[in-house]
Amino acid sequence: MAWIFLFVAGVGEMFGMLFLKLSEGFKKRGPSLLALLSGAASFYFLSLSLKELPIGTAYGIWTGIGSVGTVLLGIFIFKENVSVSRIGFILCIIAGVVGLKLVS
Rank of each mutant, 00 (worst) to 15 (best):
M1F: 11
M1K: 08
A2F: 09
A2H: 11
W3F: 12
W3N: 06
W3A: 05
I4G: 04
L6C: 06
L6P: 09
F7P: 03
F7D: 00
V8G: 06
G10Y: 12
G10V: 11
V11A: 09
V11D: 06
G12T: 10
E13Y: 06
E13I: 08
E13S: 14
M14V: 12
F15S: 07
G16N: 05
G16P: 07
G16F: 07
M17C: 08
M17K: 00
M17E: 01
M17R: 00
L18Y: 15
L18W: 13
F19W: 08
F19N: 02
K21D: 08
K21P: 07
L22S: 04
S23H: 09
E24Q: 13
K27R: 14
K27L: 12
K27T: 15
K27D: 09
K28L: 15
K28D: 09
K28A: 12
R29D: 01
R29S: 10
R29W: 13
G30W: 10
P31K: 07
P31S: 05
S32P: 11
L33K: 03
L34Y: 03
A35P: 06
L37S: 11
S38L: 07
S38H: 03
S38A: 13
G39A: 12
G39D: 02
A40E: 01
A40W: 04
S42R: 06
F43M: 15
Y44W: 12
Y44M: 10
F45L: 10
L46S: 03
S47R: 10
S47W: 09
L48H: 01
L48N: 06
L50F: 13
L50N: 08
L50P: 11
K51N: 12
K51R: 14
E52L: 13
E52T: 13
L53E: 05
P54G: 12
I55W: 02
T57K: 03
A58V: 07
A58P: 09
A58W: 11
A58S: 11
Y59P: 08
Y59I: 09
I61V: 15
I61H: 02
W62N: 09
W62K: 05
T63K: 00
G64R: 07
I65S: 00
I65Q: 00
G66T: 02
G66P: 07
G66K: 05
V68L: 08
V68E: 02
G69S: 08
T70D: 03
V71E: 00
V71I: 15
V71N: 01
L73C: 07
L73F: 15
I75D: 01
I75N: 01
I75Y: 00
F76W: 14
F76I: 14
F76R: 02
I77E: 00
F78W: 14
K79V: 08
K79R: 14
V82Y: 01
V84D: 00
V84T: 12
V84F: 10
S85H: 02
R86A: 12
R86H: 11
R86Q: 08
I87V: 15
G88Y: 07
F89Y: 13
I90M: 14
I90A: 02
I90S: 01
L91H: 00
C92Y: 01
C92W: 04
C92I: 15
I93L: 15
A95Y: 08
A95G: 10
G96N: 08
G96L: 11
G96M: 10
V97L: 07
V97P: 04
V97C: 11
V97H: 04
V98G: 01
V98M: 12
G99L: 13
L100T: 06
L100F: 06
K101T: 07
L102R: 00
L102D: 03
V103N: 05
S104E: 12
S104A: 14
